[in-house]
Protein backbone atom coordinates (compact mmCIF):
# COMPACT_ATOMS: atom_id res chain seq x y z
CA UNK A 1 0.00 0.00 0.00
CA UNK A 2 1.39 3.32 -1.01
CA UNK A 3 0.89 6.27 1.20
CA UNK A 4 0.27 9.53 -0.50
CA UNK A 5 2.27 12.02 1.49
CA UNK A 6 2.66 15.59 0.49
CA UNK A 7 6.37 15.46 0.89
CA UNK A 8 8.61 17.43 -1.35
CA UNK A 9 12.32 17.36 -0.81
CA UNK A 10 14.05 20.14 -2.62
CA UNK A 11 17.71 19.87 -3.42
CA UNK A 12 19.30 23.13 -4.44
CA UNK A 13 22.81 23.42 -5.72
CA UNK A 14 25.25 25.86 -4.19
CA UNK A 15 27.38 27.87 -6.55
CA UNK A 16 30.70 26.70 -7.81
CA UNK A 17 33.83 28.67 -7.27
CA UNK A 18 35.50 27.22 -10.32
CA UNK A 19 34.09 25.58 -13.39
CA UNK A 20 30.83 23.88 -14.14
CA UNK A 21 27.30 24.79 -15.02
CA UNK A 22 26.73 28.33 -13.67
CA UNK A 23 25.28 28.41 -10.18
CA UNK A 24 25.10 24.64 -10.04
CA UNK A 25 22.05 24.53 -12.29
CA UNK A 26 19.62 25.84 -9.69
CA UNK A 27 16.15 25.64 -11.13
CA UNK A 28 13.83 25.84 -8.15
CA UNK A 29 10.76 27.79 -9.07
CA UNK A 30 11.68 28.28 -12.72
CA UNK A 31 8.74 26.26 -13.95
CA UNK A 32 10.69 23.13 -14.73
CA UNK A 33 9.16 19.78 -13.94
CA UNK A 34 10.60 18.50 -10.65
CA UNK A 35 12.65 15.35 -10.65
CA UNK A 36 11.39 12.96 -8.01
CA UNK A 37 12.99 10.15 -6.04
CA UNK A 38 12.28 6.49 -6.67
CA UNK A 39 9.48 6.47 -4.10
CA UNK A 40 7.80 9.53 -5.54
CA UNK A 41 7.69 11.36 -2.25
CA UNK A 42 10.86 13.39 -2.56
CA UNK A 43 11.17 15.82 -5.40
CA UNK A 44 14.31 17.61 -6.38
CA UNK A 45 14.53 21.24 -7.34
CA UNK A 46 18.06 21.11 -8.59
CA UNK A 47 18.74 20.12 -12.15
CA UNK A 48 20.19 16.65 -11.74
CA UNK A 49 19.44 15.93 -15.38
CA UNK A 50 22.83 14.55 -16.40
CA UNK A 51 25.69 12.46 -15.05
CA UNK A 52 28.15 14.11 -12.70
CA UNK A 53 31.64 14.64 -14.08
CA UNK A 54 34.21 12.34 -12.51
CA UNK A 55 36.44 14.41 -10.24
CA UNK A 56 33.87 17.12 -9.60
CA UNK A 57 31.56 17.83 -6.67
CA UNK A 58 27.88 18.56 -6.18
CA UNK A 59 26.48 20.36 -3.16
CA UNK A 60 22.96 19.45 -2.15
CA UNK A 61 20.88 21.89 -0.13
CA UNK A 62 18.05 19.81 1.31
CA UNK A 63 14.65 21.40 1.85
CA UNK A 64 11.33 19.82 2.69
CA UNK A 65 7.70 20.68 2.36
CA UNK A 66 5.92 18.08 4.45
CA UNK A 67 2.35 18.67 5.48
CA UNK A 68 2.10 19.00 9.24
CA UNK A 69 5.79 19.20 10.02
CA UNK A 70 8.90 21.10 9.25
CA UNK A 71 11.67 19.31 7.44
CA UNK A 72 13.17 16.58 9.61
CA UNK A 73 16.90 16.41 10.25
CA UNK A 74 18.39 14.57 7.31
CA UNK A 75 21.60 12.76 6.60
CA UNK A 76 22.70 12.05 3.04
CA UNK A 77 24.26 8.65 2.47
CA UNK A 78 25.82 7.02 -0.56
CA UNK A 79 25.10 3.39 -1.39
CA UNK A 80 28.45 2.96 -3.14
CA UNK A 81 31.17 5.27 -1.77
CA UNK A 82 33.55 4.13 -4.50
CA UNK A 83 31.34 6.06 -6.94
CA UNK A 84 29.95 8.93 -4.86
CA UNK A 85 31.38 9.95 -1.52
CA UNK A 86 29.44 12.12 0.90
CA UNK A 87 31.57 14.63 2.74
CA UNK A 88 30.37 17.20 5.18
CA UNK A 89 26.60 16.93 5.21
CA UNK A 90 25.39 17.09 1.63
CA UNK A 91 28.61 17.58 -0.27
CA UNK A 92 28.99 14.83 -2.89
CA UNK A 93 32.31 13.95 -4.48
CA UNK A 94 32.29 12.01 -7.75
CA UNK A 95 35.17 9.62 -7.18
CA UNK A 96 34.43 6.72 -9.54
CA UNK A 97 32.62 6.06 -12.80
CA UNK A 98 29.29 4.29 -12.43
CA UNK A 99 26.01 4.80 -10.59
CA UNK A 100 25.16 4.97 -6.93
CA UNK A 101 22.01 5.56 -4.98
CA UNK A 102 21.96 8.58 -2.70
CA UNK A 103 19.70 8.04 0.28
CA UNK A 104 17.95 10.77 2.21
CA UNK A 105 17.90 9.38 5.73
CA UNK A 106 15.75 10.92 8.42
CA UNK A 107 15.77 10.52 12.20
CA UNK A 108 16.21 6.98 13.56
CA UNK A 109 17.89 6.06 10.26
CA UNK A 110 14.59 5.70 8.39
CA UNK A 111 14.89 6.35 4.66
CA UNK A 112 12.71 9.14 3.28
CA UNK A 113 13.56 8.57 -0.37
CA UNK A 114 16.48 7.87 -2.65
CA UNK A 115 17.74 8.73 -6.09
CA UNK A 116 20.34 7.15 -8.33
CA UNK A 117 23.08 9.43 -9.61
CA UNK A 118 25.57 8.66 -12.36
CA UNK A 119 29.22 9.56 -12.58
CA UNK A 120 31.01 9.69 -15.91
CA UNK A 121 34.52 10.71 -16.95
CA UNK A 122 34.41 13.89 -19.05
CA UNK A 123 35.85 13.76 -22.56
CA UNK A 124 35.62 17.45 -23.42
CA UNK A 125 35.87 20.78 -21.67
CA UNK A 126 33.59 23.15 -23.52
CA UNK A 127 33.44 26.92 -23.28
CA UNK A 128 29.79 27.97 -23.56
CA UNK A 129 28.65 31.56 -24.12
CA UNK A 130 25.67 32.92 -22.18
CA UNK A 131 23.51 36.03 -22.45
CA UNK A 132 23.53 38.34 -19.40
CA UNK A 133 20.15 36.78 -18.53
CA UNK A 134 21.71 33.32 -18.39
CA UNK A 135 20.46 31.88 -21.67
CA UNK A 136 23.09 29.66 -23.30
CA UNK A 137 24.05 30.83 -26.78
CA UNK A 138 26.27 27.91 -27.72
CA UNK A 139 29.82 26.73 -27.87
CA UNK A 140 32.50 29.38 -28.20
CA UNK A 141 34.69 28.83 -31.25
CA UNK A 142 38.36 28.01 -30.56
CA UNK A 143 39.34 31.24 -32.29
CA UNK A 144 37.32 34.45 -32.39
CA UNK A 145 37.61 38.22 -32.57
CA UNK A 146 36.47 41.00 -30.27
CA UNK A 147 36.55 44.77 -30.46
CA UNK A 148 38.17 46.76 -27.68
CA UNK A 149 35.71 47.11 -24.76
CA UNK A 150 33.68 44.10 -25.94
CA UNK A 151 33.01 41.45 -23.36
CA UNK A 152 31.39 38.04 -23.46
CA UNK A 153 30.00 35.94 -20.63
CA UNK A 154 31.14 32.31 -20.66
CA UNK A 155 31.13 29.19 -18.53
CA UNK A 156 33.47 26.23 -18.81
CA UNK A 157 31.47 23.01 -18.72
CA UNK A 158 32.43 19.33 -18.96
CA UNK A 159 30.91 17.07 -21.60
CA UNK A 160 31.11 13.34 -22.28
CA UNK A 161 30.51 12.25 -25.86
CA UNK A 162 28.34 15.31 -26.48
CA UNK A 163 26.35 15.02 -23.27
CA UNK A 164 26.71 17.84 -20.75
CA UNK A 165 27.84 16.79 -17.29
CA UNK A 166 27.09 18.24 -13.87
CA UNK A 167 29.47 19.20 -11.12
CA UNK A 168 31.67 21.91 -9.71
CA UNK A 169 35.42 21.71 -10.05
CA UNK A 170 38.56 23.72 -9.71
CA UNK A 171 39.26 25.60 -12.91
CA UNK A 172 42.62 26.97 -13.88
CA UNK A 173 42.90 29.67 -16.50
CA UNK A 174 46.14 30.50 -18.22
CA UNK A 175 46.66 33.56 -20.43
CA UNK A 176 49.40 34.36 -22.88
CA UNK A 177 48.94 37.98 -23.90
CA UNK A 178 47.46 41.08 -22.36
CA UNK A 179 44.80 42.08 -24.82
CA UNK A 180 42.00 40.43 -22.84
CA UNK A 181 41.23 39.95 -19.17
CA UNK A 182 39.17 37.16 -17.61
CA UNK A 183 37.00 38.41 -14.80
CA UNK A 184 35.00 36.00 -12.62
CA UNK A 185 31.33 37.04 -12.60
CA UNK A 186 29.38 37.63 -9.43
CA UNK A 187 27.43 34.48 -10.29
CA UNK A 188 29.61 31.52 -9.62
CA UNK A 189 30.68 29.56 -12.67
CA UNK A 190 30.52 32.47 -15.09
CA UNK A 191 33.49 34.40 -16.41
CA UNK A 192 33.67 37.61 -18.43
CA UNK A 193 36.21 37.74 -21.22
CA UNK A 194 36.88 41.46 -21.60
CA UNK A 195 38.76 42.93 -24.55
CA UNK A 196 41.17 45.56 -23.25
CA UNK A 197 43.57 46.46 -26.03
CA UNK A 198 44.39 45.42 -29.60
CA UNK A 199 46.38 42.22 -29.90
CA UNK A 200 46.11 38.46 -29.61
CA UNK A 201 45.76 36.46 -26.41
CA UNK A 202 45.86 32.70 -25.96
CA UNK A 203 43.55 31.48 -23.20
CA UNK A 204 43.66 27.97 -21.84
CA UNK A 205 41.05 26.72 -19.39
CA UNK A 206 42.26 23.57 -17.61
CA UNK A 207 40.19 21.30 -15.37
CA UNK A 208 39.48 17.61 -14.75
CA UNK A 209 42.52 16.60 -16.78
CA UNK A 210 41.21 18.38 -19.87
CA UNK A 211 41.83 21.72 -21.48
CA UNK A 212 39.91 24.18 -23.63
CA UNK A 213 42.24 26.50 -25.54
CA UNK A 214 40.95 29.74 -27.07
CA UNK A 215 42.62 32.31 -29.26
CA UNK A 216 41.17 35.80 -28.98
CA UNK A 217 42.15 38.50 -31.41
CA UNK A 218 41.19 41.99 -30.28
CA UNK A 219 40.80 44.63 -32.95
CA UNK A 220 40.82 48.39 -32.36
Amino acid sequence: MRWVLSVFLLVVGCGSSGGGRPNGGVTVGNGGKPQCGALGIACIGQKLDAPIALGSTVDLDLRYQIAGTSGPPTVVESADPTVLRVKGGAHLEAVGAGASAILFVGPDKAVLDFIHLWVQPPTELRVVRYTPQGTPLGKVLPSFKLLVKDEILVAVEPYANGQPLLGNFELQRKLQGTSVAIVPDSISGWYRIVARSPGTTEINFVALGLSAPLTVEVEP
Binding site: W3, L5, L39, I41, A79, D80, P81, T82, A101, L103, V105, G106, K109, A110, V111, L112, F114
Partner: peptide, 19 residues
Protein backbone atom coordinates in the same frame (compact mmCIF):
# COMPACT_ATOMS: atom_id res chain seq x y z
CA UNK B 1 18.72 -2.45 4.93
CA UNK B 2 16.86 0.52 6.36
CA UNK B 3 13.24 0.96 7.26
CA UNK B 4 11.11 3.32 5.23
CA UNK B 5 10.00 6.33 7.22
CA UNK B 6 6.49 6.15 5.79
CA UNK B 7 5.96 2.55 6.89
CA UNK B 8 4.30 2.55 10.32
CA UNK B 9 3.62 -1.20 10.04
CA UNK B 10 7.34 -1.65 9.51
CA UNK B 11 6.80 -3.81 6.43
CA UNK B 12 8.52 -1.54 3.91
CA UNK B 13 12.28 -1.39 3.68
CA UNK B 14 15.00 0.03 1.51
CA UNK B 15 17.84 -2.30 0.55
CA UNK B 16 21.00 -0.98 -1.02
CA UNK B 17 23.90 -2.87 -2.54
CA UNK B 18 27.18 -1.46 -1.29
CA UNK B 19 29.84 -3.60 -2.96
Amino acid sequence: SRGLSRSPAQREWVLFAKK
